[in-house]
Design a protein around this nucleic acid. Structure first.
Lengths: 338, 338
DNA sequence: TTGAAAGCGCTACCAA
DNA sequence: TTGGTAGCGCTTTCAA
């Protein structure tokens, strides 16, 4: 283990006290410009990097933020959203010397426990809450722990600061696009109803359909997986009177839906139009490429990080909206069959 | 912020010294059983969780391990491997009170810098090195930093401890399966050649082909993406004399390959057999479902974590092999067209 | 403008 | 078997 330069060493070599070094390096007042320059130069030369542990013990910070991801044990594959979301968080926190502590856990109770331990062990200064659920138990936990928290895509009644990206506009555009193409029977494949975003997307679909003078009839709830898209298609396309278009609550289920439709001998978009939501990269390359709503997980992560760090500085933060997710027309939608 | 229970408080309430509390709670000798029990019970009752920062400053540990993931800025979506890999790491480290610090970065230089800073700030006690590259620059960095490190799926000449899952056997099975089905012209779609695992898979394909008395002729190098699978198919299936089977170095490119093949009017597996590698969940549900080699990212993560924590305890660790990735026959392979 | 010193919460050593 | 205490590396008062 390479010997590490500590503040004591920097101070000794600079011939000043460690408090001066601390002040100089942290931009605090109380050191003359000349002394500051000398210290900064020396620290640089020695490759001094303050120990996060010493600093965090003395200060009130750990310089880390946490995210706990809930995955079913059998669905350990993270959804494509995550890479970009995490990348967004880091693109912001990195410049402030923060790190991200990521935990995954397979049961809901364990998730709560993880948040508790992150807080109790003072492992992190704050956390993100994403994939929010209806009456999410994590909310009480973080409040009780006094843990600074930022919610992602929360509902309006969410009691903590949150970042949102509007989804309704994109879904409305999707429905209007389909209606303009002559579709009158537009089904919906949703996600698990305990997720806030599942409900949000279904509501948006429902309202858009109604606004177009149609009635929101056919809904199948899936699991945001490819497999559930297959199943939804099997169900919706079984009878005689099948929809001519289907709005899926995410891209993965739309992919499954299309696959099953084609398996049943239907051609997309000739016999059936299918849309997704998320804007995963794969969607652009599929055949047919997927008409979808492009979300911005990276921007969401960056903005959430900005808010969380502001919270830590006791800055009052207002809920933020990043630019709405935008509708993207590709090849999986076309004129309604007559 | 909820007032936190510290070791001092536990000691005061138990009427013992903090050193006894520390010894009792950490299973160190030097406390009577009765005292230990009393302390443990009280700590439990008070909800005492040792502060990681205090502990890490005093001890030599930070109780965190790090992973830096390199993603191209435009390919921010993590590959499906990651969720399970991270889950595997955590399933192990969690019980020892360790956390995972995850960083993503978009440039290669930045990756090195991240490892340096994780080490310099004493943010982590050790790191994982995955997606190893040929002459990987990270190796020198972690050595120079004296940072305990475990490599994932490294080559035999890797100078640090590593965990491996054999890939060659699965690829050999794949090739033999295709040969048994009558295929004689079996192409390969590889990954970027600077990755160790790209080369490993190509070599395994090459050796298997040769072992079957065929010659490894057609190789197209892709990027492990769906898109590159599309491109590879466009290239390999263009001419008159096209292969009857294609072994792809990962599932995603196999999916792209199949999509493009079908786009060109070929039916899989009737006209063309295609295989993947990884065993992502999607592959089981695709139509046709994907014949592939099932890897075990979760087990790999867990084993890597075990090794890393052993390294931190100065235990000598030998390189480990987890059970080989296994060949899985599904619907994307069939008899060679005559 | 500087430096000395008191912690932060814990571990680990040594003396009782 | 216990408790006292010296750090770990830093931040933050408070005096000089």
């Amino acid at each position: 283990m390479a010997a590490r330069v500590t503040i004591t060493e920097v101070a000794a070599r600079a011939g000043v006290s460690i408090s001066s070094v601390s002040a100089a390096l942290n931009g605090r007042p109380g050191v003359s410009d000349r002394t500051r320059e000398k210290i900064v130069a020396l620290a640089e030369e020695l490759g001094f990097v303050p120990s996060v542990r010493g600093r965090s013990l003395a200060g009130k910070r750990t310089y880390a933020v946490g995210l706990v991801v809930h995955r079913d044990p059998d669905v350990l594959e993270l959804d494509p959203f995550f890479g970009a979301f995490i990348g967004g968080i880091e693109s912001y926190i990195d410049r402030y010397g923060f790190a991200l502590v990521l935990q995954t856990s397979s049961s809901r109770d364990q998730v709560l426990d993880r948040y508790r331990r992150l807080a109790a062990g003072r492992r992190v200064d704050g956390v993100f809450l994403n994939e929010l659920e209806v009456d999410d138990a994590r909310i009480d936990v973080v409040r009780e722990l006094g843990l600074p928290t930022v919610g992602i895509n929360a509902d309006a009644d969410f009691p903590l600061p949150s970042v949102r990206q509007d989804h309704a506009e994109g879904i409305r555009d999707t429905v209007e696009h389909l209606v303009a193409l002559g579709h009158r029977d537009i089904a919906f494949v949703g996600g698990p109803p305990h997720y806030v975003h599942s409900r949000q997307r279904e509501r948006a679909w429902r309202e858009s359909i109604t606004a177009c003078g149609l009635s929101p009839r056919r809904v199948v709830l899936g699991a945001f997986t490819y497999e559930s898209g297959l199943a939804a298609a099997a169900q919706l396309l079984a009878g005689d009177e099948r929809p001519t278009a289907v709005v899926c609550a995410n891209d993965l289920s739309a992919m499954g839906f299309i696959a099953q439709a084609e398996h049943l001998g239907l051609s997309v978009p000739r016999d059936l139009s299918v849309t997704g939501f998320d804007g995963i990269q794969l969607g652009a390359y599929l055949r047919p490429s997927l008409t979808t709503v492009q979300t911005s997980p990276k921007a969401l992560g960056a903005e959430a990080a900005r808010m969380l760090l502001a919270l830590l500085d006791d800055v009052d933060v207002a809920d933020t909206d990043i630019p709405a997710a935008s509708f993207v027309v590709r090849d999986s939608t076309g004129p309604a069959p007559r």
